[in-house]
Structures are given as C-alpha cells and as structure tokens.
Design a protein around this nucleic acid. Sequence first.
DNA 1: CAAGATACCGGGGAATCCACGGCATAGCGC
DNA 2: GCGCTATGCCGTGGATTCCCCGGTATCTTG
Lengths: 162, 162
Amino acid sequence: MPWIPRYLGRMTETLDPTDWAILVEVQRDGRIPLTELGRRVNLSASATTERLKRLEAAGVISGYRADVDLAKVGYAVLAVVRLKYPGNKHDPLKKLLQRRFEILECLRTTGDDCYTLKVAAGSMAHLEDLVNELTEFGSTTTNLVYSQTQPYRGPQTPPPEL
Amino acid sequence: MPWIPRYLGRMTETLDPTDWAILVEVQRDGRIPLTELGRRVNLSASATTERLKRLEAAGVISGYRADVDLAKVGYAVLAVVRLKYPGNKHDPLKKLLQRRFEILECLRTTGDDCYTLKVAAGSMAHLEDLVNELTEFGSTTTNLVYSQTQPYRGPQTPPPEL
DNA sequence: CAAGATACCGGGGAATCCACGGCATAGCGC
DNA sequence: GCGCTATGCCGTGGATTCCCCGGTATCTTG
C-alpha cells in the first residue's frame, strides 16, 4: 500500500483503492458489520473502523439511509416534472418543498427548465393535484416513469483523468 | 393502538402510524440503534425489532445504503441527460449501464424523451466524452445541475386519499 | 539517525443485537 | 359467555459487535 498523505476538510479527498472498496461495500449494504467489512477489503476490523470514521468525518460519507419501496407504501405513480420558472423569487418554492413531501427531489439546472423534480403520487388524481400546484409557479412538463432501468447507485470508482 | 391485520407479500402494505414513524427515522439515519429507535417511536427495543424485520421481509425496506458526497470523491459535475431513443433495441443501453458507472440513475419515461439519466462526471471533458457515447443511441438533451435544492428524500407519510 | 506522523494490529470492557418464553388483547367458533 | 388462536408487546440472558486503548512497523522530516 503506497503512502498517501491525507488532508481532511478539503473539497475533494484523496482516496486509495481500499477506501473505494469500503465505499462500494457500504453503499451496497449500509449495515454491514465492521468485521465483515474488514474481511471484504482485507483489513482488520479496527483499521477498517478508522478509515470509515475518517470518511464520515471528512464528509465523504454524509449519512446512512434506509431505502423504501415507493410502490409498497402506496405511491404507485412516479413522475419527472420539469418546471420553467419565470422571475427569481425562489422562496415560495422552498416553502412548497417543506410542505409537499411527495416531491422527493428537486434539482436546479441550466437550460430552459429551471428545475427538475422527481415526484411520487398515490394515484393520477393525486399527481394532477400536485402538478396543479406546481403550475402556479410556471409552466410544467410532466413525464411518467415506466420503470427504473437503473435505480440510483452511488459512485463506484474515481473519475477518469480527462 | 387499533388492531390491524397484516397481509405480507402484497403489492402495498398496511402501515400504521408507528410503522411510518419507524420509516421516517431509518430513512434519516439508517444506523440508528434499535433501542434508540424504540425510544423515538415509544416502543420497546424488541417490539421495534419485530416491526423492522417485518418491514424488511415485506420488501418495504429494500436495503440500507451509505450516502456518498459526489463532489468530495471527485465528481464535480452533475447533469441530467434526456435521451430520445429511436427503435426498440434496449439491450445495448443496458450494456452501457453496466460499463459506465458515471450513469447514476436511468428512468424510462413517457413522452418524447424515452430515458432520463442522472450522470456524474469529474470534468466537462469527461461529461462530453460520456454524452458522446450516449449520442450514439439517439439525440440527447443535457442540463447541468447547479445545486440540489432538495436532495433525495424518501416518503414521509402515506399518500392522501384522492 | 532520531523524532514525528501515519497506518495497522490485537485485546478487553461496554454496548448492541438476537432468540426465547411469557403476558395482554382482539377476533372467532361454539 | 367461554375457550381457542393469533397478534403484538415486553423482558431476559448469551452471542456478537462496537469502541477505546496501547504497541509495532514504515515512511517523512529535520
């Protein structure tokens, strides 16, 4: 293992292959015991613990989350809504995000549509009600999701040098 | 607490307010100890364990994941790419998903653009390289992400009756 | 070469997880 | 009403895991 100095708190961290192996495993199973994790990455439990703590302290791992099946809890409809947002009063939208938990994700982007939202609804009527409220902000474009060809996965390797 | 019969293995589960409280907590912190979780939802540790196991067995909780900060591991650029996909040979795209881990998510949707992808890149040159490869399948529309106004969050309440 | 820093290992006490049996209540059949 | 069963909750250990400690090897620095 080459010696690589670590400088914490920086924008981008210096991660060696073992760190990446740890990240891959904890992204796959966030509740894996540290002894098992150590076995997977060929390290003792205590060394694995130190690396994991460092990754958490540096903010590389920002937290652990349980993954909930939307359909199983009653959200049968998933949709992507793009919102063309005239003007620059963005506070009302933030208010809406705090009230409407059906909005699962909201990305501000370049291009004609200022925001791209991922929303979940229990029925088409529910989705219509939600889009109605969004349309008060600007024009919307809604696409229903057939299936998640690739459910969200985190980064698995460092980005290539380009 | 009202008595509610439970039927596992169905498309949608019957969840009472305590189940939802558990879901909210484990989505916020997937590594919370069961004793602490029980305290939050006013239940003993063993009762909490049984409910959690049931939710896992029923597939309501599909797994636990560590959340990795993309910028901290070198992915400075996040983008939404919409892909207009002529024809119906979808296998090559699946191959690409297995090879290109920069594609974090892929949704098949209704509308003019068949697929909506979320991709991460280390630089604009890297993103260009990636979009070039996607353009071989069909025409693409790329929007860079300024910021995640609302990072992904799971469902917090049952859907309203509409 | 000595001093400091980094990364790893191993050990032992504390906390957690897990499986068991017991208790209370709701629904069901008689 | 009266048993019987099923469900949900609790409490108790025994096994596992976590967490903090000191010790060692290697590399950097002066």
